[in-house]
Simulated scan of single mutants.
Amino acid sequence: MKTSFLRPLLEAAVLLMVLLGGLRWVLGLFSRNTHVYQPTAGRQLRLAFWSALALGCGLSVVPAVALKDEPANKLEWVLAAGFGAVVLALGGPALLLHLRYWRLNQATAVVFQPQENRLEVYEAGQRIPFAQRDLRRVERVTCSARHSFWASYDYLRLHLADGRVITLTSLLTNLEPLTQFLRSTPTDRRSVAWCWV
């Protein structure tokens, strides 16, 4: 019973990964280098892959114990629940961050061309008007837990002179080149264990 339930799911996951990898390779042949960064399916998959895989594999133990032919004893339930709790503690925070970042930047696009001294931020298709001289402070927050599932989640906040704050997350792109581009603006760098915005 357990293998008849899990095998189609694993086959579908492998097929989806192969299809997405092939599609990315084919699109990479015909695409040109872009300077527009926005949340894409590939970027989201790259960030959330290991945490989603861990949660999917780890939490499948509890239904497997519940659906097996003979009733499970207490030890099996304790082991399954403990394993599920550990996997949830490891992968859950990364998926929470992913959902939070997606909510913040789902409609955000960044046009970044350092050679042309160009940085533009669009929210829902509308350009947020600001120039580099309008920036009062840049806040760069990175993750100090380098070996966790949420290590690649970080963010950058642009504090403008008029009080507005623009938040750019790692769901858009790698933020380090953008931070280097804004090095003439006072930058506060912090490293925290979990980069919640």
Score class of each variant (00 low, 15 high):
Y153A: 00
V110E: 01
E139Q: 07
P129I: 10
L99R: 13
H35A: 14
R43G: 08
A72D: 04
L172M: 02
Y122L: 12
L45V: 06
L15H: 08
P177S: 03
S152E: 12
W102A: 01
Q132I: 12
F112A: 02
L23G: 12
A124R: 08
V62K: 09
L99S: 14
N105P: 00
L96Y: 07
L156D: 01
L16A: 09
T169Y: 05
T169A: 02
S31A: 13
D134K: 00
Y37I: 06
V138Y: 04
R146Q: 13
A41K: 08
V86A: 14
R24M: 11
W194N: 07
S31N: 12
K68M: 10
T185N: 11
V87K: 08
W77M: 13
F181V: 13
T3S: 10
A72T: 04
L55H: 06
W194M: 07
G82C: 10
L175A: 02
A124V: 13
T185K: 15
L47M: 13
K74C: 09
L53H: 04
A48F: 04
G84H: 06
V121C: 00
C57Y: 11
H159D: 03
R24Q: 14
E116A: 11
R133Y: 03
T40W: 03
Q38L: 09
R43A: 08
T167E: 00
A124I: 07
F30P: 06
V87T: 15
L59P: 10
V197W: 07
G58N: 10
S152M: 11
L16Y: 10
L47I: 06
P8R: 03
V18H: 06
Q115G: 04
V61H: 12
H35K: 09
S170I: 02
E11C: 13
W196P: 02
R133A: 15
G22T: 14
L171A: 05
R137L: 06
F112V: 15
P71E: 14
R46D: 12
L119Q: 01
W77F: 06
S144V: 05
L55Q: 06
K68Q: 12
E11R: 08
F5D: 14
V110G: 03
A41F: 12
V141A: 02
Q106F: 14
V61G: 10
N174Y: 04
G21F: 14
A107L: 12
K2L: 15
A52R: 08
S31D: 05
V110F: 01
W77S: 14
L9W: 15
W77D: 10
F149P: 01
L172V: 01
L158S: 01
R7P: 02
E139F: 08
S31T: 14
E116T: 11
L88F: 05
V165Y: 01
L156A: 02
F112S: 07
L59Q: 10
A193M: 05
R133H: 09
G22I: 15
W102D: 04
G56S: 08
E120N: 05
P177T: 08
